[in-house]
């Protein structure tokens, strides 16, 4: 397989992996973020317009987006509302904002972003290096640091963490804010690759990111997640898309076929889990 081929195939894996990591933070605290896809679209639209024309405004809007994510986490914790409800609402908010920012497909990302995403490294394609760096960074942050243990623990047994004197509001806000940060990175990476944006650019990312987390060994409840697995899961899903192209499956059938692959892979994972448990 050639350098260029790998690069092409895995290029779109990086924004997917970033969105998947964002979703993983939310899943760690037993919530689900349905709005990540439209948030990525929104970030993409901002990046292709304001970030180039009025950088200060652009950065402020992106930081504001992260703040809204943190606020969402706080609302979910304080009002004890199911995250699905709140993030479903946010899905439409981000979608609407994206259309407001960029009513028609178009725009252009800032030059540095385009250069960064199309950076050609010698020998090893950039997406692979970036994915490894991403997995390592998040793994160390969430799985190896002492506060990471508290964050994961607040998904495993929230009352135990609360009784030990930790703030559950803080863990929730930190996790949602991190989801916002990685959602921003995902939108930037996506627009850097596609060179123009559209209000529906990240639409598929909500389901893709959830599937990536689960595929990578995460579980919906109980704080059991794996950052390395999530990145691999996201890349696998991207490759599954390319595979269908290679197999010359008509685009009409590709979305359905991708869903089929997903079911098969997830079923295989569940079976491996079961046999693993039986031998313990």
């Amino acid at each position: 397989m050639s350098y260029l081929g790998l690069n092409l195939m895995l290029n779109l894996g990086l924004p997917t992996a970033l969105a998947t990591v964002a979703q993983m933070f939310v899943i760690t605290v037993n919530d689900l973020d349905l709005s990540i896809g439209t948030f990525v679209s929104f970030v993409g639209c901002v990046a292709a317009t304001w970030l180039r024309d009025a950088p200060l405004l652009g950065y402020a809007v992106l930081i504001g987006g992260v703040a809204v994510y943190a606020l969402t986490g706080a609302v979910i914790y304080l009002r004890n509302i199911p995250s699905i409800v709140v993030t479903l609402g946010m899905l439409f908010v981000w979608q609407g904002l994206a259309i407001l920012v960029l009513p028609k497909p178009g725009g252009k990302p800032p030059g540095w972003l385009h250069d960064l995403m199309n950076f050609h490294m010698p020998y090893v394609p950039f997406p692979i290096v970036a994915a490894i760096a991403l997995a390592a960074l998040v793994h160390i942050g969430l799985m190896r640091t002492s506060y990471g243990a508290i964050l994961r623990g607040s998904g495993g047994n929230p009352s135990a963490i609360g009784r030990a004197g930790w703030s559950l509001l803080k863990t929730k806000v930190v996790m949602f804010a991190l989801a916002g940060v990685f959602g921003v990175f995902s939108g930037l990476a996506l627009v850097g690759l596609t060179t123009s944006a559209d209000a529906n650019i990240g639409k598929g990312y909500t389901l893709l990111s959830i599937a990536g987390v689960i595929l990578g060994g995460g579980e919906f409840v109980g704080g059991r997640v794996s950052p390395i697995g999530a990145v691999i899961g996201a890349l696998t899903l991207t490759l599954a898309g390319s595979l269908l192209n290679f197999m010359r499956i008509s685009p009409d059938w590709q979305v359905g076929a991708q869903g089929g692959i997903l079911i098969i892979v997830l079923a295989a994972r569940a079976m491996i889990d079961q046999t693993g448990r039986r031998t313990v």
Binding site: G153, G156, N157
Partner: peptide
């Protein structure tokens, strides 16, 4: 009140 997803040391 242990977190089942953490290791003994992390708990």
């Amino acid at each position: 009140s242990l977190c089942p997803n953490l290791t003994v040391a992390e708990n």
